[in-house]
Design a binder for these strands. Structure first.
Lengths: 246, 246
DNA sequence: CAGTGGTCTAGACCACCCC
DNA sequence: GGGTGGTCTAGACCACTGA
């Protein structure tokens, strides 16, 4: 590590942040894959020629961003959507009473199209880029809870089809990660109330015109690159969207 | 600081967390009030007979929880709702396009009542405890955006009335803090979609039956004590609820 | 037992703010 | 210049895990 880089300057960046950037790059490039243990703190300190405390601070920030998971006595691991604990990290819908025993994702449709203005703006694609659109129904304990309409750039998810979805009984983000090597690390949601149309009303078993939550999500992978756009229609008679503010 | 307390034991708690607990207590007891600078890190280190690094770690956690705000070169301060930067910390509604120039809170009603089952359960009060209920309309740039229905235990907000509200042109949490010494530090929100009733429809200038967000909030002060229950009816034609997931 | 992350210390120096 | 928080180091020891 070049100490000169820490010289005061208009673009001062502390050492631990430079280390962090290098480590994030190792994640992006796949040097350390999801679920893997990364080298120990002392190994990393030696590799970057800094003290253990500096490496530690870099890892602290990455753990706070859910990029890494520390496990005392075992090591530090690249976080993964295969971990059951992260299953509900991006799904804030929960039952008004009790807990969810079982959630089932039922693919409904999957087709190819060309990106229109809206999708290309959100995902940073050129208008006309091939995209894959899929619709699926998510049920909790046998009751339909939400319908998702998902827009993906086809080049990143080449063979995605209804067949693939039906033969993979896992969360979508697990599928993205395991089959396509695309890891979602962050998302933004914009929520509105709308009236159910015919299609969603039937899927969710509510009358047309019933109030639904419309949850629009943009999900990002490493480098703040948006790779998924999603419109979720949430039935909130038995469930609600939970959020904690601090 | 009694080092023996750090001896390995079934209830091991690191030194910096014990320091943090002591400091949180100082906040609860009002030794350090909102907006005040707390003692410098070296002073605190001396007071608790620990190293500066240990105090630092305690402050780090408190800053992460928005209890304190660090300002390099100046000191560490008790966070306050008087700080304009924290104005939208608990209000996640934002315009679909552009920014909010001006927000106006217009009190509509304010009356006393006795806590029913729902309020007492949420706020941890006995049924029948005196509560104060108020309704207000929040407008952004002249357009009505949301109606709040707010339930408070009367003993903590003794003279709260329509008159007080009309003569205090500040955010409610500023009023709570400045006039009643109640600081909100955390909140939970549960969001559903509902149809507008007559009253809220008129206030928000939308037809009866239009879809609205119902945002139920429980807000907590120090010690995780719930002190406010709120039902917000958000019009989401021009605005949306924004949330970031990570 | 050895190896990992977690805590704590003491001291040096830097960046920022204000007098 | 003197105070504050911010960074970085080197070293000691503790807590947890698994072979």
């Amino acid at each position: 590590m070049n100490r000169a880089a820490t010289t005061p300057s208009p673009t001062f960046s502390p050492l631990y942040r430079q280390i962090k950037d290098l480590m994030v790059r190792s994640l992006e490039l796949g040097e350390w894959g999801p679920g893997d243990a990364i080298p120990s703190e002392s190994e990393l300190a030696a590799r970057f020629s800094v003290s253990q405390g500096t490496v530690r601070k870099a890892i602290d920030e990455m753990a706070a961003e859910n990029l890494l998971v520390r496990r005392q006595g075992k090591g530090t691991f690249v976080s993964t959507h295969n971990d059951p604990r992260s299953l509900f990290r991006f799904l804030r819908l929960q039952p008004n009473e009790g807990e969810i025993d079982q959630s089932i994702s039922e693919p409904v449709e999957c087709w190819r199209a060309k990106a229109g203005q809206d999708v290309s703006r959100v995902l940073g694609l050129a208008v006309g880029t091939p995209i894959t659109i899929l619709r699926r129904l998510l049920s909790f304990d046998g009751e339909p809870a939400l319908v998702d309409e998902i827009y993906l750039p086809s080049d990143l998810f080449p063979d995605l089809s209804l067949d693939v979805l039906q033969h993979n009984d896992m969360s979508l983000y697990r599928l993205y990660e395991n089959r396509y090597g695309v890891r979602m690390i962050r998302a933004e949601e914009r929520i509105r109330a709308i009236a159910a149309d015919k299609v969603n009303g039937e899927l969710l078993k509510v009358p047309e015109g019933s109030p639904l939550l419309l949850v629009e999500r943009v999900a990002f992978t490493y480098g703040n690159k948006p790779v998924e756009w999603r419109r979720g229609f949430y039935a909130t008679n038995r469930y609600h969207y939970f959020n904690e503010l601090s």
